[in-house]
């Protein structure tokens, strides 16, 4: 009998993306499980962003840093709009992105038709004031629907007070999108979603309609409850 060397099984390696952080006197290990290494950074997909990087000289510093692969929805196309993509993802149900995208495109078509009709009906000197770009209308609608404050229940002495609190930019965006979509879904059975959404967006872009009213109502309630604001910290 002869022995043929040593062949061993090594222990599987653990992910190395580990960092230490402190909260009070306790130390915590923060682990992230990623197929990329710890020093990979996100890609800069848009042409404007890359131009900026070169002008500011940051591109030089990025030269040695590995970049993550661009995600499957990212593109440098001029037709790509980040906010529209975000809105589409909120419209999406059960992961049917193609359907959600189709609905948004139909909405945009509807908006375009309505605005073009309006454009041709208006007299020559007022024509410039009409926005014909549906993406611009979506942006306006969302920025007009964004709330600044929110009411959160806080229990003090057995009583629940509705306390106004300032919200983050992200939360504000989320609420605006959610309100626009829910108000568009609240419709007659015979009306299609893209049609209703187009009306809602046009209303909100003109700073009127149900969603803007909802925002104003919330702000009014916050104003009425401002006496409770100190419960946020006391």
């Amino acid at each position: 009998m002869t022995v043929l060397g040593v062949i061993r099984l090594s222990v599987l390696t653990v992910p190395r993306n580990v960092s230490l952080y402190r909260r009070g006197n306790e130390e915590f290990l923060h682990k992230t499980y990623s197929s990329y290494g710890p020093h990979y950074v996100k890609p800069h997909v848009t042409t404007e962003k890359r131009k900026e990087l070169i002008e500011s000289g940051e591109a030089e510093t990025l030269k040695l840093i590995p970049i993550k692969a661009a995600l499957n929805y990212e593109t440098c196309s001029v037709f790509h709009d980040e906010l529209t993509r975000k809105f589409t993802n909120h419209v999406m149900r059960c992961g049917k992105k193609a359907l959600a995208r189709e609905l948004i495109e139909k909405t945009f078509e509807k908006i375009k038709r309505i605005q073009l009709e309006k454009y041709h009906k208006t007299p020559e000197d007022q024509k410039e004031s009409i926005i014909k770009d549906p993406v611009k209308i979506l942006h306006d609608a969302i920025s007009n629907s964004k709330p600044l404050l929110e009411l959160t229940p806080v229990k003090r002495g057995g009583v629940r007070y509705q306390v106004p609190v300032p919200i983050t930019e992200n939360r504000s965006l989320f609420l605006a999108i959610k309100w626009l979509i829910t108000s568009a879904k609240d419709k007659d059975r015979k009306i299609h979603f893209p049609e209703k959404l187009a009306w809602e967006l046009l209303d909100a872009a003109a700073n009127q309609g149900r969603v803007v009213k909802r925002k104003v109502d919330l702000h009014r309630q916050c104003e009425a409850n401002k006496a409770f604001a100190h419960y946020r910290w006391s």
Binding site: S35, K42, A69, A70
Partner: peptide, 16 residues
């Protein structure tokens, strides 16, 4: 090529 690298086009996406 450097631009493509910055845009994350030349990285192989190993996620499974």
């Amino acid at each position: 090529i450097e631009q493509m690298r910055l845009a994350g086009l030349l990285t192989r996406d190993y996620r499974k």
